[in-house]
Amino acid sequence: MNVTTGLFYVFAAVLLFAAFRVITARNPVHAALYLVLTFFQAAMIWMLLKAEFLSITLVLVYVGAVMVLFLFVVMMMDINVENLRVGFWKHFPLAAVVGVVIALEMAAVLMGGFRVVDDPAALAAATAAEPSNAKALGKLLFTQYIVQLEVAAAILLVAMIAAIALTLRARKDSKYVSPGEQVRVKSVDRMTVLKMDATKSAPVVETDDTEQKA
């Protein structure tokens, strides 16, 4: 067993453990962090498969953007964990059967792609002759698909400018406070101290007997 195979087993073992902890952790924040670890291990496995672009994309998009959003929502919302776990063991047998069937189907599909190479030298030579995945994809994007890339970039730029314009537009029903004015504010400009007499008890009013009889 070479170094690549050993790293694959290590990454796969950590990935399976982290994926198991995602669905078994009681704390939603811990589950989201385990999901981040799962994405990192999947990215490392893709790196071993020489899919550098997919590996970097997984880290940047899912770990750097999607999971940050998940953590922000989970930590800001008051989630009742006990309500989320209601009926877990009731539906666990069906979920386990479905998971096993999916795993067997994926194994049947993927096992056909594994081929044992008898000559390690030939495998090393073929691997060294292959260009970098990210380099080949970059050449393809900036040569054959340069027009489509420029159109997509222009659409994203227009969408970004439109989002900024919608955010900064003036609305009559919204109240806007300048952050600069809030920073420069002083207590003497916003608060007035008034001198008032101490609290006194109310005087007791004595009534006549005639008024009480009436």
Score class of each variant (00 low, 15 high):
94 L>V: 09
188 V>P: 06
207 T>P: 06
52 E>C: 01
69 L>M: 06
189 D>C: 05
59 V>E: 02
142 F>N: 04
66 V>M: 05
83 N>L: 10
171 R>H: 14
57 T>H: 03
39 F>G: 02
187 S>H: 06
157 L>K: 04
45 I>V: 14
207 T>I: 15
204 V>S: 15
20 F>M: 06
35 L>I: 06
99 G>Y: 12
166 L>A: 09
52 E>D: 13
1 M>H: 15
86 V>P: 00
29 V>C: 03
162 A>D: 08
101 V>N: 05
54 L>W: 08
147 V>C: 06
28 P>W: 00
152 A>V: 07
34 Y>N: 07
99 G>D: 13
60 L>M: 10
60 L>T: 09
20 F>C: 10
117 V>T: 13
35 L>F: 09
172 K>Q: 15
27 N>F: 05
26 R>E: 04
17 F>C: 12
203 P>M: 02
2 N>K: 06
206 E>V: 07
154 A>R: 05
132 S>G: 12
3 V>A: 02
144 Q>G: 11
141 L>P: 01
104 L>A: 14
76 M>P: 07
40 F>V: 04
196 M>V: 14
117 V>A: 12
102 I>G: 15
135 K>V: 11
9 Y>T: 08
168 L>S: 09
211 E>W: 12
92 F>D: 08
24 T>N: 07
150 E>R: 12
127 T>K: 10
59 V>P: 01
80 N>V: 14
50 K>T: 13
195 K>P: 11
114 F>M: 09
201 S>A: 13
66 V>Q: 04
136 A>I: 04
28 P>E: 00
170 A>F: 14
117 V>G: 11
206 E>R: 11
33 L>E: 05
127 T>Q: 14
194 L>T: 15
67 M>H: 03
102 I>L: 15
180 G>S: 01
178 S>P: 02
210 T>W: 07
56 I>S: 13
102 I>V: 15
36 V>A: 04
75 M>H: 05
210 T>H: 07
162 A>V: 15
104 L>F: 14
196 M>N: 10
177 V>P: 04
64 G>L: 05
208 D>W: 08
63 V>Y: 00
132 S>M: 03
135 K>R: 09
45 I>T: 10
5 T>G: 10
91 H>F: 09
10 V>P: 01
166 L>T: 04
187 S>C: 02
187 S>N: 09
163 A>Y: 12
99 G>Q: 09
67 M>F: 03
42 A>D: 06
159 A>V: 12
212 Q>G: 05
93 P>G: 03
5 T>V: 03
108 A>M: 13
139 K>D: 08
72 F>L: 08
34 Y>D: 07
183 V>D: 10
176 Y>H: 08
154 A>E: 06
119 D>L: 07
170 A>W: 14
6 G>A: 04
13 A>T: 14
129 A>G: 12
71 L>F: 06
55 S>Q: 01
163 A>Q: 02
103 A>P: 04
62 Y>I: 02
119 D>A: 08
161 I>G: 13
110 L>N: 11
6 G>Q: 10
17 F>N: 13
133 N>E: 04
30 H>R: 07
25 A>I: 07
147 V>M: 06
99 G>W: 10
72 F>Y: 12
